[in-house]
Amino acid sequence: MEPPAEGGSEMAAALRAAKRALRADLRHRLRALGAAEKQRQSRVLSRKVTEHSKYQESKRIAIFLSMPDEIQTEEIIMDIFKQGKECFIPRYKPHSNHMDMLKLSSAEDISSLTLTSWNILQPSDDDSAREEALAGSEYFHHTL
């Protein structure tokens, strides 16, 4: 294995700074949007997702549970269950880059989830009864 190219750490630091600046700009833009506009954009996106051919063809959907300043995913989740599809949500491992996609049994199942220190709802660490989306999966995966 070759040593990192000269300036690699400088490039990494510049990339981290650019990411920080982009995130700060996005946070500023999101705060500037009113609640009605956020809801309108969420409805538009939900409709685009649920009308997309790949979504229509899919039997198993992985989706995040939205935070207040994010696109709201509740309409999509409700449609997943209404259409009889399987719904998977992330469970993040603390101090790790690892994430499992675990199955929800219903939209109401969301109320049984644990709130993390990041204010994210997810299945608890000791919840081992849920199906993991990729465990033994022979399914073909699409990205929208």
Rank of each mutant, 00 (worst) to 15 (best):
M1T: 05
P3C: 01
P4S: 05
A5P: 08
G7M: 01
G8C: 00
S9Y: 14
E10M: 06
E10R: 08
M11I: 02
A12I: 13
L15Q: 06
R16Y: 04
A17W: 00
A17C: 07
A18N: 06
A21R: 12
L22M: 08
L22W: 12
A24D: 13
L26S: 04
R27N: 10
R27Y: 08
L30W: 14
R31Y: 06
R31T: 06
A36F: 11
Q39L: 12
Q41F: 00
Q41P: 06
S42D: 03
R43F: 07
V44N: 10
L45P: 03
L45V: 13
L45D: 04
L45S: 06
L45Q: 08
S46Y: 02
S46N: 05
R47F: 11
K48S: 10
T50E: 11
T50Y: 07
T50R: 13
T50A: 03
H52A: 15
S53N: 12
S53T: 07
S53A: 13
E57W: 15
K59Q: 08
K59G: 13
R60N: 04
R60F: 10
I63D: 02
I63K: 00
I63G: 05
F64E: 00
F64D: 01
L65N: 05
L65F: 05
P68W: 03
P68E: 09
D69E: 08
Q72G: 00
E74D: 14
E75Q: 00
I76W: 01
M78P: 01
M78Q: 10
M78H: 09
D79M: 07
Q83N: 04
G84W: 12
K85W: 00
F88G: 13
F88A: 06
F88S: 02
P90E: 03
R91V: 08
R91D: 04
Y92E: 02
P94V: 08
H95A: 14
S96R: 13
S96F: 09
S96Y: 10
N97E: 15
N97S: 15
H98Q: 14
H98T: 07
L102V: 05
K103E: 08
S105N: 14
D109F: 11
I110G: 00
I110V: 15
S112E: 05
S112L: 14
S112C: 02
L113K: 02
L113D: 11
T114D: 07
T114P: 01
L115V: 08
T116N: 09
T116P: 10
W118S: 05
I120W: 12
Q122L: 14
Q122W: 15
D125N: 11
D127M: 02
S128D: 11
A129K: 14
R130C: 07
E131L: 10
E132H: 07
L134A: 01
A135K: 15
A135F: 10
E138F: 14
Y139G: 05
H141L: 11
H141A: 07
